[in-house]
């Protein structure tokens, strides 16, 4: 169980770093670096944070569902759907600011991850 928590924490750290880096890189930076960071972030960043927020180990413990494929599928599909909805809203509103949209998604992702972190700290036994 501890290793599962560790791997979830490691995934959370990676997503947080990518989300954090996406904010400045969505405005400036070398094209290749921006693509390497923002591409994967838009593909799976917000969805992965959501999955971590949903506490998959409890889902797994609950009924023995094989949740890994579903978790990955939701991570990707939710991220894509969020970006699709956000870009559509901007287009229809006549307010096309993709860098700001990426930053907004990154902030939401970081918010979810902060909530996950706060929850796990609350549950840690006092020293």
């Amino acid at each position: 169980m501890a290793s599962k928590h560790r791997s979830a924490a490691a995934i959370g750290v990676v997503v947080a770093v990518v989300a954090l880096a996406s904010i400045p890189l969505s405005f400036t930076g070398p094209e290749e670096l921006r693509l390497v960071v923002i591409g994967p972030f838009l593909l799976a960043g917000p969805g992965t944070a959501l999955i971590l927020f949903l506490k998959p180990p409890r889902v797994r413990k609950g009924t023995g569902f094989e949740v890994l494929p579903l978790a990955v599928a939701i991570a990707v599909s939710f991220s894509l759907a969020s970006a699709i909805l956000l870009s559509t809203a901007m287009l229809y509103a006549g307010f096309w600011h993709p860098s700001a949209a990426v930053s907004l998604l990154a902030v939401l992702t970081l918010g979810l991850l902060a909530a996950v972190d706060r929850r796990s700290r609350r549950k840690e036994p006092a020293p």
Binding site: L35, G39, L42, L80, A83, T88, P98, A101
Partner: peptide, 10 residues
């Protein structure tokens, strides 16, 4: 829009 967002932001 998603592709354009990727293109503009990168």
């Amino acid at each position: 829009g998603l592709l354009a967002m990727l293109s503009n932001a990168t």
